[in-house]
Design a protein around this nucleic acid. Structure first.
Length: 458
RNA sequence: GUGGAUGUAGCUCAGUUGGUUAGAGCACUGGUUUGUGGUACCAGGGGUCGUGGGUUCGAGCCCCAUCUUCCACCCCA
């Protein structure tokens, strides 16, 4: 025994304070999900491997945690793959289950599996942990919480509009101002690739373009050349490297750039629809921005793409993302189901709120009042008031031992308990409770009924 | 998966070209104060220096391996 107590890398323990901060975020998000009409579902922590494998690209497969089969798994292992050191094939012969990598693919599986019970369009939300065998960094963990809301079974663009409003209301509610909702459309990216005659290199093209803010114009061009995109092609899209102005200005620039691409035009129309709608429905605190370099996200996005940037003063990657996928359930055999959804990265939002000191003061409070324990009889006297306080939904507790006063007071102080009740022999005599406000130091005696009244309203 | 840093008390960190018994601040425990915390003063406990090996008369310090955490890349919330 005596192995040092530890947890796997990329995972975390959460202290009481951390849990209450996390709950503050997730309950805020959940509240807004509900007011927008989403219903909760949950799916298993692990899925059959073939549900997940191959859905996130080659890179994604590498990052999926595989669960070793139980029993004598080596007996059934693919010995040919083992001999040939073919890890991928060997893994599939000794592992049939895997931890979920995101909430979207399991949701697609859920929709297909339960299609007869679901009323479409189906609006669901889901707040659960997901797992990635990635190397941890700041804001990047191997176990983390995603908060997803998706609509499946409708291709209406009003949903994109509502999702933008949803993002805005959540961040407004969290007092996180200065968030940017970056938006793009897969059809614009396809259009760009089409215009430059490199449609078959769409993915390479967009992945390179996505790095513009990181490696700069020259870096992007170099990566494109490395991927076999011709120099003249790159020149044709030169305008997007200096793509400034407001949403409407950018749209008109795109219109001329993509005038020969039907799919590009379609993407522009979609963006324009959303932009016009939001002119009539102004956002509260977030800013909407059109970012043609935005290509993040999974290969399955077909229309809108969203990504949320934290306020510029915080160094943090995206704190949320989402998009439209026309045929997500197709991979599980259910055709023509368009879906659109967004995700909030709870762990990263936590780090941002922490850095900007935006957690409300109240979440530190656990118990409202602590009764000092002076001995057996006094404890019983205290519990009579405590019982009634609890009935009145005031969290109250008795210090379990008749320890030294100083120790009990220190305990209350450390736990930021705002009130302490001192009720010893003399208080019992006159049937009162001495209430002390720990912040101001004020002290006064109350009858039991007045004590309960006082603590219920304050 | 690739590359770079890091690890000394519960926490944040000092620790000389390798040299006796490894330090500080905070935290903790007790006291000044037998029914009054958060401030002050006094005292005390606490470390196989990440782990395993090697070099040396001698290693916290040098070498190798391994693990952890952090940073960058890939990718992503």
């Amino acid at each position: 025994m005596a192995s040092k107590a530890s947890i796997p890398k990329g995972t975390r323990d959460f202290s009481p304070l951390e849990v209450s901060k996390r709950q503050y975020i997730s309950s805020t998000i959940q509240e807004h999900f509900k007011t927008f009409g989403f219903q909760p579902i949950e799916t298993p922590t692990f899925e059959n491997s073939d549900t997940l494998m191959g859905k996130y690209g080659e890179e994604g497969d590498r990052l999926i945690f595989k669960i070793l089969n139980s029993g004598d798994y080596l007996k059934k292992a693919n010995s040919e793959a083992y001999q040939g050191k073919d890890s991928v094939r060997l893994a599939s012969s000794i592992s049939e289950k895997a931890l979920k990598y995101d909430l979207t693919v399991p949701f697609a599986r859920y929709v297909v599996q339960h299609q007869n019970e679901i009323d479409f369009p189906f609006k669901r939300f889901q707040i659960q942990n997901v797992y990635r065998a990635d190397r941890p960094q700041r804001g990047r963990f191997r176990e983390f919480t995603q908060c997803d809301a998706d609509v499946i079974g409708s291709d209406s663009l009003w949903q994109e509009v509502e999702f933008i409003q949803l993002y805005d209301s959540v961040f407004t509610s969290l007092k996180l101002e200065g968030v940017t909702i970056k938006m793009n459309n897969r059809k614009i990216l396809s259009g760009l690739a089409e215009v430059i005659g490199e449609s078959d290199k769409l993915i390479d093209f967009t992945v390179a373009l996505d790095k513009l803010d990181k490696i700069g114009e020259e870096g992007v061009k170099k990566e494109m050349l490395d991927k076999g995109i011709s120099e003249s092609a790159i020149e044709n899209i030169q305008p997007i490297f200096n793509f400034n102005g407001d949403f409407a200005t950018k749209i008109s620039l795109l219109k001329s750039l993509l005038s020969n691409s039907e799919i590009g035009q379609q993407g522009i129309e979609e963006l324009e629809f959303i932009q016009k709608a939001l002119q009539e429905l102004p956002l509260k605190t977030a800013t909407l921005d059109l970012d043609v370099t935005l290509a993040r996200g999974l290969n399955y996005y077909t229309g809108a793409i969203f990504e949320i940037s934290a306020p510029a003063k915080v160094k943090m990657g995206s704190i949320g993302g989402g998009g439209r996928y026309d045929d997500l359930t197709g991979i599980f055999g259910l055709k023509n189901m368009s879906g659109v959804g967004i995700s909030f990265g709870l762990d990263r939002i936590y780090l941002v709120l922490e850095e900007l000191d935006l957690f409300p003061e109240e979440i530190k409070e656990t118990t409202k009042v602590l009764f000092i324990n002076f001995g057996e009889e006094e404890a019983l006297y205290a519990l009579k008031a405590i019982t009634e306080l609890r009935t009145a939904s005031v969290s109250a507790e008795l210090y379990p031992d008749a320890a030294k006063m100083k120790k009990q007071m220190t305990y209350a102080d450390k736990r930021s308990i705002p009130y302490v009740v001192l009720a010893g022999g003399s208080e019992m005599q006159s049937e009162v409770y001495n209430l002390k406000n720990m912040k101001t130091g004020e002290q006064a005696s109350y009858t039991k009924d007045d004590l309960i009244k006082k603590l219920t309203i304050s």
